[in-house]
């Protein structure tokens, strides 16, 4: 049962990266593009649904109900980067809404836009740093080691920082795909196709840097990857999909493009999860927190699973209806 809940957790995480990623990345992309182009991004992402962070909330709830020691340990050791993520979420979430609903056209909107854009980068970066801290295995519960070792070192290192940058590029890339497949103006399609390609190349380079910094930090990320058949399969498929992706990008095939990009992102997350499994949090002492050690009793898992399944049965048709109403209905709305 715990495994089923964990799988749902990973699915929520993927949806957060995919949907929330396009949304966070929108802010980053606005920053990367100048003048009219950034206006075009902001228009393209306007329908991206601000409530996407419900996926993140689901992750959190599954964690504290199903795997409470993971929740407590992570939020203690990574308190600082998580707080920075939260401040970023507040800033960008409110700035996005204010920009959308402020009646005044120009003056305050420039301020909201600036806050939205910079905090999108900030939030995404620290999200990556937090994930880096989770993977690296410098987390310790030995509070005697002092403030720096316990609360700073696990996330302030080259590996986590490169994970942060990787995340920024990944989210910007996802938003690029979204924008390209959403807009109609030919010139801007070319403009954003070029930008998306550049982002993809930087992403691949950054991925290599992530592996390199892991090696330097003494974390055998590459070895783990090679040893896990699932991760190898994920990487191989993701790489094989690259030419197809490039083709769709050049031909501007919106839906195929999104599908391949979604597939590749999903593969990255799955590949990571496969090497991590069954460890949930790696720690410095080597007493890693595994599923077995962290999971709440079966009874709790059962009720959690029921709640999640019922939730899915209610939510997905509702979301389908929402999507249908807005994607396939003709009438434009002011």
């Amino acid at each position: 049962m715990a495994e089923a809940n964990l799988i749902i957790l990973v699915i929520c995480l993927m949806l957060y990266v995919l949907l929330g990623g396009a949304d966070f990345g929108g802010g980053i992309l606005e920053l990367l593009s100048r003048g009219k182009a950034s206006k075009i991004v902001s228009r393209a992402i306007a329908p991206v649904w601000e409530a996407n962070h419900v996926w993140l909330i689901l992750v959190v709830v599954i964690l504290f109900v199903g795997f409470p020691s993971v929740y407590s340990t992570v939020l203690t050791a990574l308190h600082i980067p998580v707080l920075l993520v939260l401040l970023g979420i507040i800033a960008r979430g409110s700035a996005f809404t204010f920009r959308h609903y402020d009646i005044d056209e120009e003056r305050p909107k420039a301020i909201y836009s600036a806050i939205f854009r910079y905090s999108s980068v900030f939030t995404t970066f620290f999200l990556g740093v937090t994930v880096g801290g989770l993977i690296l295995g410098e987390i310790t519960m030995d509070y005697q080691l002092g403030f720096y070792q316990v609360y700073i070192h696990p996330w302030l290192n080259w590996f986590s920082v490169s994970m942060g940058l990787f995340m920024v590029l990944l989210f910007a890339f996802l938003a690029g795909i979204f924008t390209v497949s959403e807009i109609e103006d030919k010139d801007y399609i070319i403009y954003f196709t070029r930008m998306t390609k550049r982002l993809l190349i930087s992403l691949v380079v950054m991925g290599a840097i992530v592996f390199a910094t892991a090696k330097v930090a003494g974390h055998p990320l590459l070895k783990d990857f090679i040893n896990s058949p699932i991760s190898v399969a994920c990487i191989v498929i993701a790489t094989l999909a690259l030419p197809a992706f490039w083709y769709f990008l050049n031909k501007n095939k919106g839906n195929w493009l999104r599908l391949t990009a979604g597939l590749q992102t999903t593969l990255i997350v799955t590949g990571w999860f496969a090497i991590q499994f069954p460890v949930l949090v790696k720690t410095k002492s080597g007493h890693d927190i595994t599923i077995q050690a962290a999971k709440a009793p079966e009874q709790v898992q059962l009720f959690l699973l029921i709640a999640l399944i019922v939730g899915v049965l209610i939510i997905f048709p509702a979301m389908g209806y929402l999507y249908k109403t807005f994607k396939f209905s003709e009438e434009p709305e002011s």
Binding site: V54, V65, G66, Y71, A296, V300, G311, I314, I315
Partner: peptide, 18 residues
Amino acid sequence: AGPIFGMPFSWEGTAFFV
């Protein structure tokens, strides 16, 4: 407390979503 009082939070998640 998480595993004990968490159930309403998971229902709450559904309610928020809807």
